[in-house]
């Protein structure tokens, strides 16, 4: 039953793949290798290692390891700074009045523009890439957190005052949970933006990581490798987004249900 439904839902995927395979074989265009060739290259590049390492090759380690580490480090750093600052700003109308124009300006700067700047400031390598990611993705987190903290239900805050919650309790038990749906929306946007900036930073400045592999494959005419990188990046984006949605669904169960019933 489930299988039938899955076929009903997913049939276009295999159809597209087969059509793509046929079209590329007929056209014999070097830029567009057949999907089967791409798949084979992906296996050779990343999944032909020893079983003790889950088949992952040296190259897989050096492509994915640093990229994922930078991605998560940058995202986590931006999340901590963005949420903390956002709660502080959102709780104080005065502070947000002062900072509003600066925040608008900051979030409007296209983050890739800063890649050359951070490279010059911090030298090639991880610090510059981290700085690019953090600076680029902090804005959706910050703006969403401010919005969430600012629009906490008045009655929720008054209840906290009536029952004499301490400042810490007010923050951790009332304001942050109430702002959580908005914070999560910001974090999710930030995650996909982080992947984009990671690739820009790696291509532009890196010496390792998936973005670097992608560009060097293109420059050395290894088009199946390039497509393999594209596919893997798509998979990575998909997995990150799905994992995050799963987390969001768990953490925000109350939010979805509360909205359904009222």
């Amino acid at each position: 039953m489930n299988a039938i439904r899955a076929v009903g839902r997913l049939w276009l995927v295999p159809v597209t793949l087969v059509a793509w395979e046929i079209a590329t074989r007929v056209a014999e265009q070097p830029f567009f290798p057949p999907p089967s060739a791409t798949l084979v290259r992906m296996g050779e590049m990343w999944l032909s290692g020893p079983p003790s390492r889950l088949l992952l090759t040296e190259q897989a380690m050096s492509d994915f390891g640093p990229s994922l580490a930078r991605l998560f480090a940058g995202w986590a750093l931006a999340a901590v700074i963005g949420v903390a600052a956002g709660v502080a700003i959102g709780c104080s109308t005065r502070l947000s009045d002062y900072l509003d124009p600066l925040i608008h300006l900051g979030r409007a700067v296209p983050p890739p523009l800063l890649v050359p700047f951070f490279l010059a400031l911090l030298k090639l390598g991880t610090p510059a890439q981290l700085a690019t990611i953090v600076f680029g993705i902090i804005w959706p987190i910050l703006v969403n957190t401010i919005d969430g903290a600012r629009t906490v239900d008045r009655q929720h805050l008054e209840t906290a005052r009536i029952f004499g919650f301490s400042t810490v309790q007010r923050l951790t038990r009332v304001i942050v949970p109430a702002a959580m749906p908005k914070i999560f929306a910001g974090l999710r946007l930030a995650l996909s933006l982080a992947l984009i900036l990671l690739i820009v930073a790696e291509i532009f400045a890196g010496s390792g990581g998936l973005g670097y592999r992608l560009l060097s494959a293109q420059r050395t005419y290894l088009y199946a490798d390039m497509w393999g990188c594209l596919v893997v990046l798509g998979l990575l984006g998909y997995l990150l987004n799905s994992a995050f949605l799963l987390l969001e669904r768990r953490v925000l169960a109350w939010h979805r249900n509360a909205r359904q019933t009222t």
Binding site: D153, R173, P177, A178, W254, T262
Partner: peptide, 9 residues
Amino acid sequence: DYSRSLYPW
């Protein structure tokens, strides 16, 4: 307003 007097989380 009962829908807002408790913390839904």
